[in-house]
């Protein structure tokens, strides 16, 4: 379960603090429910997702995570001077998988299909290879809730097919909070929806209702 309490967020701009992107969001997101974040461009979907994931921090308010929550899928930080394997080792260690390190590394290497490039510095990777590695990293750990920001569009056609299958399997065993601009994707993966409008959020038990509310404001 994730409890969000009175969340406020604005960014620094060239001319001092900008306008409020999120303004007083209070939500409780239960585990094992797949939720889609819905809203217009710039409504704060990605911002909210990043704050939930702990990558960014709110100006006011708090997020309480009572479960194992992933980082935004496919956006894990990579150090360009280190190899794919060294980066993967780092992430495994941070997540406390010192004991079964070899097993996780084997999974990451095979899923990302990097083969021997796994031992090359990340700075030499193409953008496709990079996102394949980042996606494999996200799937290598068991989280209770995954968060995803337009992740299914990674790699070439063959990899994308495999990624979507893995993604679907994952959504059956764990919860998911996702941002997607495609209505079909949202309906395919999500049961519930959160509609963001003018810095406020509204929870809908059915994703269709959230999409309807979004269309009514257009």
């Amino acid at each position: 379960m994730i409890a969000i309490e009175d969340l406020h967020k604005r960014y620094k701009t060239e001319h001092g603090p900008g306008k409020w992107v999120l303004q007083g969001i209070t939500l409780t997101i239960p585990a094992k429910v797949n939720v889609g974040l819905i809203g217009a461009n710039g409504a704060g979907k990605s911002t909210l997702l990043r704050i939930i994931g702990g990558v960014d921090h709110p100006n006011k308010g708090r997020v309480e995570r009572h479960c194992r929550l992933s980082w935004p899928m496919g956006q894990g930080g990579l150090e360009p001077t280190l190899t794919g394997r060294q980066n993967a080792k780092f992430v495994c260690r941070v997540h406390g998988h010192e004991a079964d390190l070899a097993e996780r590394l084997a999974f990451i290497q095979s899923f990302s299909e990097l083969a021997e490039s796994f031992d090359e510095p990340v700075s030499t990777y193409s953008s496709g290879m990079r996102s394949r590695l980042q996606f494999a990293l996200s799937l290598a750990f068991d989280f209770d809730i995954y968060i995803s920001d337009e992740v299914t569009a990674a790699g070439d056609a063959a990899f994308r097919k495999k990624a979507v299958a893995a993604f679907k399997a994952m959504t059956h065993r764990a919860g998911l909070i996702m941002v997607a601009h495609d209505e079909g994707t949202l309906k395919q993966f999500c049961q519930a929806g959160i509609f963001l409008y003018q810095g406020k959020a509204q929870w809908f038990d059915a994703v269709d209702e959230a999409l309807k509310a979004y269309k009514d404001t257009m």
């Binding site: 194992r68 150090e79 001077t81 280190l82 060294q86 080792k89 780092f90 260690r93 941070v94 997540h95 406390g96 010192e98």
Partner: peptide, 23 residues
């Protein structure tokens, strides 16, 4: 669930090894 101290030690170890490689 790991204790906060265990998480901190795991993180220190991971960053130490990674920084050593970098350095």
């Amino acid at each position: 669930m790991r204790s906060p101290l265990a998480v901190s030690f795991a993180v220190w170890r991971a960053i130490f090894l990674r920084e050593a490689l970098d350095r």
